[in-house]
């Protein structure tokens, strides 16, 4: 039984079906990448996994627990399982980096502030941001903001880490750093699901690649280093990725939801 099994997810906007019976499986510690042309439903699919996008129907089994994604209470359950890093990061600008990390653990999970700060500082140190704990997000570079956003998500101790275009605003050097970080997290057992246009990152990092077209899963490639060799995926990468897509500085944001 896979660690995560998402099945039959349908999203409707009026008469339009933006996601049609989409699904995927992943094992613990997998890095899964959603790829596809703009408007294919990648970001919509990602948002369903954390209850930000209402679904018409859909089931998720995660860590042996079944979630009816269409049920009204599913959003809360999904958010207990997953954390997301938004493309724009969404760091709260009026709080220090440290407070951004400790807000949810102290206010929502009611953990002690001291314990949360201790964990947050350890996490920041691991991500090379130990000296940034007390600064405002506005004083960070793009790469630092993203690592802080990842750290904030990790403070929730999620089973699933979702990332929307994690490399879209980063220069190639920083993209490599993010790749290393994601691989480290995956090795620690974190299951990561990302939407990405950076085909170089996708093919080198992913244990599974899910190709979406017109709201449907067109192909799934599996196996690190092999996933991108699935014929449909390879064809898509050749036509939509190429060298430009391996250079994340040239990748674009995806307004596909």
């Amino acid at each position: 039984m896979p660690y995560i099994d998402v099945r039959d997810v349908c999203v409707r906007h009026g008469k339009n079906e933006t996601l049609r019976h989409a699904g995927f499986e992943a094992e613990r510690g997998d890095i899964v990448s959603f790829i596809g042309p703009s408007g294919s439903g990648k970001t919509t699919f990602l948002r369903t996994l954390i209850g930000l996008q209402p679904v018409w129907q859909g089931q998720m089994d995660v860590h042996g627990r079944n979630v009816d994604m269409a049920a009204p209470a599913s959003a809360r359950i999904l958010r207990e399982q997953a954390a997301i890093v938004f493309q724009q990061y969404g760091l709260f600008g009026h709080m220090s980096v440290l407070r951004n990390l400790t807000l949810a653990p102290t206010v929502v999970a009611k953990r002690s502030r001291r314990e949360a700060e201790h964990e947050a500082r350890a996490l920041l140190e691991r991500l090379g941001l130990a000296d940034k704990a007390d600064v405002l997000p506005a004083d960070l570079s793009g790469g630092q903001k993203q690592r802080v956003a990842i750290a904030r998500a990790l403070m929730l101790r999620p089973a699933l880490l979702l990332l929307d275009e994690p490399t879209s605003a980063l220069d190639p050097h920083k993209v490599r750093d993010v790749g290393v970080l994601l691989r480290d997290l995956a090795q620690d057992g974190m299951t990561i699901i990302q939407v990405s246009h950076a085909m170089g990152v996708v093919s080198s990092l992913s244990d599974r690649i899910v190709l979406l077209e017109d709201g449907q899963v067109r192909a799934v490639g599996t196996g690190r280093g092999y996933a991108a060799q699935q014929p449909d995926i390879a064809a898509f990468m050749n036509t939509h990725g190429g060298d430009a897509a391996t250079d994340p500085a040239g990748s674009r944001s995806d307004p596909d939801h």
Binding site: L103, A104, V107, V108
Partner: peptide, 18 residues
């Protein structure tokens, strides 16, 4: 207030009052 803050707050588990 940046619109993404509302979604971030939701996904962090903050309720409306928080």
């Amino acid at each position: 207030v940046p619109p993404v803050y509302h979604e971030v707050a939701l996904t962090l588990g903050l309720n409306r009052r928080q």
